[in-house]
């Protein structure tokens, strides 16, 4: 019988929910401490609200990119490529990786947990999440997709093991989503490997507007499955997501 350690950490102006499975409270607590420290470290380095963050200072040309920042910028370039430019690092005129930092940080947090021997876990950073192993007793994690019109209502459930889910909408905070195309979906959810890519694709699906479906069909072939809640409130799902 597993006894998950559950924690909600206020950071990045949102809340990161952390569920660590297993029976070894000592490992769970050690993992949690390390993860929480990591999340706050990321906040200090990448906050666009703190003028003294590494990111802001780099954007002002006051320092060269640290290895961490370089890693995020490199990944951002790959996300841009993967999404045919619909994820746009320079949406704001300057390189702004804010849109993928959360996903990147969660991917690393999952690694921290696993290095502490935690095989069953879930980390949800304000709606973009990563699962590993099972929810307990070998059962799949059950992820609800929230209705953008009413966050207490679920429009779909995805169950499984070892997967990431990210959801974006046109009213996403952070405004890193720039809609170039006319029609947009009310919400785009993506399920796939690596939260940083999964999240970047969800963001791109919104900014791609009516080109989103073409983009998502292509990405489905590469292992990222997606669902769009369209403006008429019907659901479009890529082949991998199923019906």
């Amino acid at each position: 019988m597993s006894h998950p350690l559950v924690h909600a950490e206020h950071v990045w102006d949102t809340v990161v929910s952390i569920h660590l499975g297993g029976e070894d409270l000592r490992s769970q607590q050690a993992a949690l401490t390390a993860i929480v420290a990591w999340l706050h470290h990321v906040d200090e380095v990448f906050s666009s609200f703190r003028a003294d963050s590494v990111l802001c200072r780099w954007q002002r040309g006051e320092l060269t990119a640290t290895p961490e920042l370089q890693e995020v910028l490199d990944i951002a370039g790959r996300v841009e490529e993967l999404t045919e430019g619909y994820f746009d690092l320079h949406w704001n005129g300057v390189a702004d990786p804010t849109g993928i930092v959360k996903g990147w940080a969660v991917d690393h947090a999952v690694g921290i947990a696993m290095r502490h021997g935690i095989g069953d876990l879930m980390i949800n950073a304000g709606g973009d999440l990563s699962t590993r192993g099972s929810r307990g007793n070998g059962q799949p994690w059950r992820v609800g997709i929230a209705d953008p019109a009413d966050a207490t209502t679920i429009i779909a459930i995805v169950n499984g093991y070892d997967f990431n889910v990210a959801t974006s909408g046109p009213s996403e905070r952070g405004e890193h989503i720039r809609c170039r195309e006319p029609r947009t979906a009310l919400a785009a959810s993506v399920c796939g490997p690596d939260l940083v890519f999964t999240d970047g694709i969800a963001t791109a699906a919104i900014s791609a507007g009516d080109k989103a479906i073409d983009l998502l069909i292509e990405l489905d072939r590469q292992g990222w499955f997606s669902q769009l809640l369209l403006e008429d409130r019907t659901l479009w799902r890529s082949a991998g997501w199923g019906r």
Binding site: H19, G127, V143
Partner: peptide
């Protein structure tokens, strides 16, 4: 009761 976690557009604190 049927779900463990919710994915949605980012919520504030």
């Amino acid at each position: 009761a049927q779900i463990d976690v919710v994915s949605g557009a980012t919520y504030t604190s």
